[in-house]
Design a protein around this nucleic acid. Structure first.
Length: 461
RNA sequence: GUGGAUGUAGCUCAGGUGGUUAGAGCGUCAGAUUGUGGAUCUGAAGGUCGCCGGUUCAAGUCCGGUCUUCCACCCCA
């Protein structure tokens, strides 16, 4: 016996019901994106490693799936022990491609490469899978879909407002509550500046980002351990712990960050953003959280993070502004903002909240039973007629027992079954059975299309 | 990448201290009902106990390794 087949860890197969639900999410998100004037685009699953490496921080580089060169790649490796004792050195010699880690960096590459073919400010959306060599956990996969929307080539904060509204629209349509946290990297930069440790930016923000998960003492401990003075730590903690409503927090920070030009700029930006958001009539919570940091290295301004209100699963959407991402690819002075919806986590949330509409999996509207060759050929004509009228119809492919055919229709959640046997064939009629009520009636084939179109009822499960 | 738990039929799980032929519920299939599904009854099929090795007269059970899934850290959608 062969070994049981399997798929790589952290990857998944999707059954028809799951696909129906996933497509519902993609459809909803796409509808909102196009409503805001964004256009679709795609990039390849694999990129050159030179495009990917060094953009996501040290940890990110480790999580990139590398693709082995084809052919006799080993003969090109110098016969030197350093290559065979160090995986990183070896992989640099035998891999030149990798699977994309997110959609933002490939997008930056795309913008630089096609700068003369696109119109700025460029608004695009991109829905594709990404891969991370992470250890799988709940809500954490090695292959998952991101739904990105970005505006590049404009530093107006109106773009941030548009993105915030997109977030609000998407979760309103998907019918569950989200909590959106907003901060600004400039506020964080100002924070380490007034604490006198501007060179410790990355270690400080990764530490305070954990405030939500662990208790305050751990974060303080981590900061001290990273070499900050007690005074600097106190300063940082006082900034992250300002309380009140959004405007209250902002005015408190105006005091605390007064000495930092960058910090004040961040506060000004946030002030503008919240002023507009408050009059936007949003349905979800938008909260200024000075402790929100986000790991990715390339953010420079506003940062967003969205969590589901009633499910523990990590962030379901995130993003921010990046000023220099295209620079490494040779195009400077172009600022962009974007957010990314995590379709797989949104799926998990909706499954837990039972937020999917019931009627998603209704493929076939009517199935014709098969009583034999003559009946089947008559059915096929009617099936063709219905399909022309836009009604999805199928004929059971074998003259199996009634029970078997009915069970099939029942399982597939088909609304109607047409029975055409010897008598119906002779009379040129069809016996139409409603699979929900169980009632049946005899009608002419010509009446069928009209009757099915009129009846909007769909069985739900 | 570090630490911990887990793995028995398609699914959910039983199987004290090793001892003949590994069980249940659900599901599947068949029949009761030769042109009628979702209810009920009857019956059947389905397992190299994750994989490899070791200890033992004897391993689902003990030991080691490996893989999977899950949890924590790290990081993140």
């Amino acid at each position: 016996m062969l070994q049981k087949p399997s798929i790589p860890k952290g990857t998944r197969d999707f059954l028809p019901l799951e696909m129906a639900r996933r497509n519902y999410i993609f459809r909803t998100i796409t509808e909102v994106f196009s409503l805001y004037g964004f256009l679709p685009m795609e990039t390849p699953a694999m990129e050159n490693l030179s495009t990917l490496l060094g953009k996501y921080g040290e940890e990110g580089d480790r999580l990139i799936f590398k693709i082995l060169n084809s052919g006799d790649f080993i003969s090109k490796v110098p016969d030197d022990d350093v290559y065979f004792s160090n995986s990183n050195k070896l992989s640099s010699k035998i891999c030149e491609k990798g699977l994309r880690y997110d959609l933002t960096v490939p997008f930056a590459r795309f913008v630089v490469q096609h700068q003369n073919e696109i119109t700025f400010p460029f608004r695009r959306y991109q829905i594709q899978p990404v891969w991370r060599a992470d250890r799988p956990q709940k809500g954490r996969y090695r292959e998952f879909f991101q739904c990105d929307v970005d505006v590049i080539g404009s530093d107006s904060l109106l773009n941030e407002i548009e993105l915030a509204r997109i977030i609000d629209d998407v979760f309103s349509r998907l019918k569950f509550k989200a909590a959106v946290k907003i901060n600004n990297r400039k506020v964080l930069a100002g924070m380490v500046e007034v604490a006198g440790v501007p060179e410790k930016f990355i270690p400080v923000i990764t530490a305070i980002d954990k405030l939500e998960k662990t208790d305050r003492d751990n974060v303080v401990g981590e900061l001290l351990q990273k070499g900050l003075s007690e005074e600097a730590v106190n300063k940082i903690m006082s900034i992250t712990e300002v309380s009140g409503d959004n405007t209250g927090k902002l005015s408190a920070l105006r005091e605390l960050l007064g000495k930092s030009e960058t910090g004040m700029k961040g506060i000004k930006e946030l002030g503008f953003l919240f002023k507009y958001l408050e009059k936007s009539g949003l349905e979800n919570e938008f909260i200024f959280d000075p402790a929100l940091a986000r790991g990715l290295d390339y953010y420079t301004g506003t940062i967003f993070e969205v969590k589901a209100k009633d499910v523990e699963i990590g962030s379901i959407c995130g993003g921010g502004r990046y000023d220099n991402l295209t620079e490494v690819f040779g195009l400077s002075g172009v600022s962009g903002v974007g957010i990314s919806f995590g379709a797989d986590r949104i799926y998990d949330v909706m499954l837990q909240l039972n937020a999917f509409p019931g009627e998603l999996l209704t493929g076939t509207r009517i199935m014709f039973t098969n009583f034999g060759e003559d009946e089947a050929s008559y059915c096929l004509d009617i099936v063709g007629m219905l399909r022309k009228a836009g009604i999805s119809a199928e004929l059971y492919p074998e003259a199996a027992k009634m029970k078997k055919q009915m069970t099939y229709a029942d399982r597939k959640n088909i609304s109607y079954v047409a029975l055409i046997g010897e008598t119906e064939l002779k009379e040129r009629t069809v016996t139409l059975k409603n699979m929900v009520t169980g009632s049946q009636q005899k009608i002419s084939p010509e009446e069928l299309a009209g009757l099915l179109q009129e009846d909007t009822f769909l069985p739900g499960r």
